[in-house]
Nucleic acid binder design. Structure first.
Lengths: 194, 194
DNA sequence: GTCTATAATCAGATAGAC
DNA sequence: GTCTATCTGATTATAGAC
């Protein structure tokens, strides 16, 4: 049942959890190790450095999230209206962040503290994600469903910031992930005013 | 012309700039000192520790930003329609972030890495800011200008996250702060769809 | 009030036993 | 593959001269 890297995977999950919860500077290797059931030096059997470990978490988080969103959009079929595609993407993103993918949440939390060199490589992985959103937004404008008077880059930045923030303030037991996703769609597409 | 704490003020400004630009973990005391025209140990004549210096930057940033927003809203007079008040607040916030107040930008950048004890105190200062936005939003709902079907807390979190993000991606020479503010108002109040 | 040492701390990383 | 022990390096912080 276990592949050759069970403990490697456990370490990555522990790291993702700690990074999402406490950020980069406040997570020590010993915290990650403890959560993975071992001591800090053992991590070096699986990863060359803290940076490499963090980088893998980031890239994995971006990859998982992108793939999840794409699936939930593409299942609608190639002829789905662009607003339906946008709605599916927003809902998928919130869902994924709030329903326990620590990797995806860690990305937003840690990205801006990454050392320059690491950040460049992570940025490359991020571009797939970013481009997908750009296409959804530009597509919605081209189809006439969204306003061309709005700058698509600004819309994307605002939207992603808004969605990403949710993993920082979401508390289970209050509004559900579904309800938050619904409000995000409403707000982004139709606004708060009556 | 110079009060008793000119260099103290210079240090705070240097710290705000470094914190907004590089985040907490990546700003060293020596960076702050250099920007203030002195060497790291000299900072200890003015501040007890890095934490205390950072805390003062945070509290000052929150205070300045809150005061700026309140002024720009209250100048409309007590009978201004609630949408005008919201619009003024959004515009003021973006303006303040993008037109060079490093203290305000540093808050969003650094807040989540603060050591627990510091963060608690900063959070107390933050509540004035937060409550003001809450009142603007709830007021707009009560007046009927904004939809009661939306959760006011979620709207506030989404709005502030969206606005705060701008200091991270704004680049002078592209869209102006005014234009970004306009798009933020449009998006938040009327949405992106046609 | 700012400097030149220098100490203290702490976290990342390595060596080598088991 | 994980441990104990140790090293290294970076950064905060202190002592004390000027």
């Amino acid at each position: 049942m276990n592949g050759p890297d069970t403990s490697r995977a456990r370490i990555l999950e522990a790291a993702a959890y700690m990074l999402k919860t406490r950020g980069l500077a406040r997570t020590k290797l010993s915290d990650i190790a403890e959560r993975a059931g071992m001591l800090a030096p053992s991590l070096y059997h699986h990863f060359r450095s803290k940076n490499q470990l963090v980088e893998e978490v980031m890239v994995e988080g971006i990859y998982r999230n992108t793939r999840h969103i794409m699936q939930r959009v593409e299942v609608l079929g190639p002829d789905a209206p662009s607003l339906a595609r946008l709605t599916a993407a927003i809902t998928a993103h919130i869902d994924f962040l709030l329903t326990g993918d620590d990797f995806a949440s860690a990305v937003g939390q840690v990205f801006h503290d990454l050392p320059d060199e690491t950040r460049h490589r992570v940025l490359a992985a991020y571009s797939t994600f970013d481009n997908y959103w750009r296409d959804l937004i530009v597509g919605a404008q081209r189809s006439g469903a969204c306003r061309s008077s709005m700058d698509p880059t600004v819309m994307r930045k605002f939207l992603i910031a808004m969605l990403d923030s949710s993993s920082g303030w979401f508390r289970p037991g209050k509004l559900s992930a579904q309800e938050i996703a619904r409000q995000a769609c409403e707000l982004f597409l139709h606004g708060f005013a009556t």
